Computed example of a mutant assay.
Amino acid sequence: MASTMQLSKSEIVAASLQKIQMELRTQKMPLREAVAETCRILFAFGHDSGLSGQITARAEQPGTYWTQRLGLGFDEITSDNLLLVNEDLEVLEGSGMPNPANRFHSWLYRARPDLNCIVHSHAPHASALAMLEVPLVISHMDTCVLYDQCAFLEKWPGIPVGNEEGEIISGALGDKKAILLSHHGLLVAGATVEEACVLGVMFERAARLQLLAMAAGPIQPIPHDLGCEAQRWVSTQKRFEATFAYYSRRARRGLGAE
């Protein structure tokens, strides 16, 4: 005899979240390995743009973070060739130099102590929206991890290597976890590397869906309460870890975006 058929949706959601938390098996990578794997995942999902884009993760010592070495593509990053830098982008560990555009990451980490990983890329569909100066619209269930979480910087401040750009971008992000930067690209940030990686992949997918939908007609909004419900449903650390592990397996099989 079924015992759950009379339960309300909220009761089923609560019970399911608890079961996911208790029973979904995940395994976290060490921090440096997770950062390097994020680089390779983003490459597999089409985020590479030469030497553009940065993935950073807050390190143990305050005011420091890990990032990739300038001169290497996303697909070439390993845990061994990552650099540990301070807020002035001085290398504390590793060989080489970081991308000077990492400066705005320093500003973001200062402004948002809740964020521990930042993903910035010039993925093609997000960049196409950026060229149109059109904000990202979340109107599909699959991309609701970004619902009500995406800010928009309408005016391009130029190359992001000065402190002015750091102030502008961190201010525009506000309390959100993602932002579309006009004439530039995407930026997402999370409490963990796994969260930031998932948000980065889903941002580009959302941009691709938006461009496809815009070509056919006006995009219809989803109800705000349902969008928020969906965002909460998929935004658990367990879910991020499981999705990150799947993206990793997919990247290692040589599979990219659909």
Rank of each mutant, 00 (worst) to 15 (best):
Q210H: 06
F45Q: 04
A216S: 15
L181Q: 02
A207E: 10
E165S: 00
G73M: 09
G46L: 03
P218T: 11
L146M: 13
L108M: 12
L132R: 09
Q237N: 07
G174A: 06
E195Q: 02
H224N: 05
I168N: 07
Q231N: 14
A191G: 13
M5R: 13
N81R: 06
R69H: 09
L83P: 02
L187N: 02
M22N: 15
E87Q: 11
A128M: 11
S248W: 06
L7F: 04
G162F: 00
W233D: 13
V201Y: 14
S121W: 00
L42S: 06
A216L: 14
S8E: 08
E60M: 09
F240A: 09
E195Y: 03
S170L: 10
S182C: 08
G217H: 10
Q237F: 00
I55R: 11
N163A: 04
D88G: 01
S49V: 08
A14S: 12
G185C: 02
N102K: 05
W107H: 14
F74E: 01
A101L: 03
M29L: 14
I222R: 10
D75P: 03
G174T: 08
G256S: 09
M97T: 14
T143K: 08
M1Q: 01
L153R: 13
E90T: 10
R40K: 12
R58W: 03
R250E: 09
L136S: 10
L129G: 04
S248D: 12
E76W: 00
A207G: 11
G53T: 04
T192R: 01
F152G: 08
L186Q: 11
A59K: 04
P30V: 12
S106I: 04
L31Y: 10
M5W: 01
C228Q: 10
E164W: 07
S127Y: 04
E33A: 13
G46K: 03
E133H: 06
V198A: 14
T4K: 03
L115A: 02
L209F: 15
R253W: 12
A36N: 07
A126S: 15
V85S: 03
N102Y: 15
S79W: 04
G162C: 02
T192S: 12
A15Q: 14
V201K: 13
S248M: 15
L17I: 13
T38N: 04
A151C: 12
V119N: 13
H140L: 10
K177T: 08
F74M: 13
E93P: 03
G254I: 05
